[in-house]
Design a protein around this nucleic acid. Sequence first.
DNA 1: ACCTGAATTTAGCACTGGCTAAACTTCTGT
DNA 2: ACAGAAGTTTAGCCAGTGCTAAATTCAGGT
Lengths: 144, 144
Amino acid sequence: MPAKRRVNTVKLQSAAFRRTRSDHSKELAEDYVELIADLIDDHGQARGTDVALRLGVANATVVKMLKRLTELGLVSQEPYRPIGLTGEGWQMAENGRKKHQIVERFLLALGVGADAARIDSEGIEHHVSDETLKAMARFLARNT
Amino acid sequence: MPAKRRVNTVKLQSAAFRRTRSDHSKELAEDYVELIADLIDDHGQARGTDVALRLGVANATVVKMLKRLTELGLVSQEPYRPIGLTGEGWQMAENGRKKHQIVERFLLALGVGADAARIDSEGIEHHVSDETLKAMARFLARNT
DNA sequence: ACCTGAATTTAGCACTGGCTAAACTTCTGT
DNA sequence: ACAGAAGTTTAGCCAGTGCTAAATTCAGGT
């Protein structure tokens, strides 16, 4: 393999790895925002305790993360009040829910059991490109 | 929904979230080990510089991580020598490569383009349960 | 044999995301 | 009305993963 070609391959590969890794904090943000949206829709409000319980982390961790999400313009909150989402936050939540739903329904259609489909879709959701998502949607449309 | 039922749901959900998150360090370990195995197979040896270049991180980061992987019993190395894998390391690498290959071939069979398939499989690989992997393999067997 | 350049390691820093314990608000039931 | 329960926040800790700069070791060519 010529040197130039190899360099390009390496660059592409490192980009792929770096991407999956730098996305970790974005993933976390998406998990929080999506969960908050669900809580608000299901219970009328989202409280820190609920988020902590659902995510399996300590209360203080949620507080710290919400501070970061507020700085990112996704969450809006006043002290000692339930958690709210900004417009941008709602948009991210909607997007995530759509993705999540397609992935989970896709796995079910593929023959994966309900439990595994739920768990795996949670993890996979954040690593699916638009192109792959479209392919999954096509599959769903064909197999219905 | 009865209280008991809801609690179980919450526990399941938090378990799913916690799992995807606590796996981050395991993911990283798998990426390193898989890459080292590839380098050894392709070039006869794996050097820190190559790993750093491929993963898109600094040299010192690789050194630190290799120390952790050595403590985990996955990597074996003497100072200033190329990187080796333990039996357990090779086993993990093999496992990862198998998974990776199935996921990537599955995405291709689904109609995803080569570039997206490569990048997405990199990210998805670590979040696919055995059950889902089997479903993908079944799909591949049917559509060949 | 030895010098130089490449590779590796060490040292020290920053940030993220986790935790516990303690302090502080808010809500609720009597 | 207010005491206690429930929820939130603050403070301070730790581990993991990244970085740069400087020191060290190794290997090749003269």
